[in-house]
Design a protein around this nucleic acid. Structure first.
Lengths: 111, 111
DNA sequence: ATCGTTTATCGCAATTTTACGATAATATAA
DNA sequence: TTATATTATCGTAAAATTGCGATAAACGAT
């Protein structure tokens, strides 16, 4: 693969793709849905809800955090994970118009 | 990795993740935006718009097709690629509520 | 000070992704 | 028929992802 050509793409597209990629796993979808469902901070019990090892869940949380979709604050022994509103706004601002755009486009297409 | 535990997740989450994953690369974002922009069928000139080799673009097209986001019909020597309205509708139906849900949730959160 | 709990990280392995060049396959043009 | 153009696929390689167990780190409780 050598060099990731992704660097040659538009910033907004790169960011959209980054957000999409972060959500491109059922475990990570499940995690953000969990965080949305319970409006209090969820700490470690995320692991119990998923059919995955603790270390694996921790990795998924890290991926979501790196993408800016969630944030995690250390709270004593535990870590408090919650949705990152900035990231969610960004997700909304990038994805909603994109999907809408696609939907409109399909209505006037040749096939 | 042994077994992909993803199979143990909910069908709708798996599908959402599949769609997201398919859009999780700037080249594929660029492709669908191209297809949306030009409402006629785009054939091979997608390759010329991207900083990638023809075989690589072909692979990305295949990924989008497998996810049901685009479709490609052979038209003589060329292949006519366009958005798959069924897939776009699915994308819309799965993602729009999800993002909306997340956005609402961030407004009543503890951190 | 020690013990238990929680969570991140490390090491490892299997799989998937990304990318390219080369090549095959197919249809059109000469 | 032969050449040309278009696109998919194959083979290969590097890198990233996914997953787990083991372990470390850090805090609170005893």
């Amino acid at each position: 693969m050598a060099i990731t050509k992704a660097k040659l793409f538009d910033t907004s597209r790169k960011r959209s793709a980054e957000l999409m990629k972060a959500l491109g796993h059922p475990a990570r979808i499940a995690i953000i849905e969990l965080l949305a469902e319970r409006n209090t901070c969820i700490c470690g019990d995320i692991t119990e809800e998923l059919p995955l090892a603790q270390s694996t869940v921790s990795q998924h949380l890290k991926a979501l955090k790196n993408a800016g979709i969630i944030k995690g604050e250390v709270d004593g022994v535990r870590t408090c994970y919650c949705l990152n509103s900035d990231g969610i706004v960004e997700l909304n601002d990038l994805l909603t118009p994109l999907v809408k755009n696609l939907k409109t486009a399909t209505q006037e297409q040749c096939c």
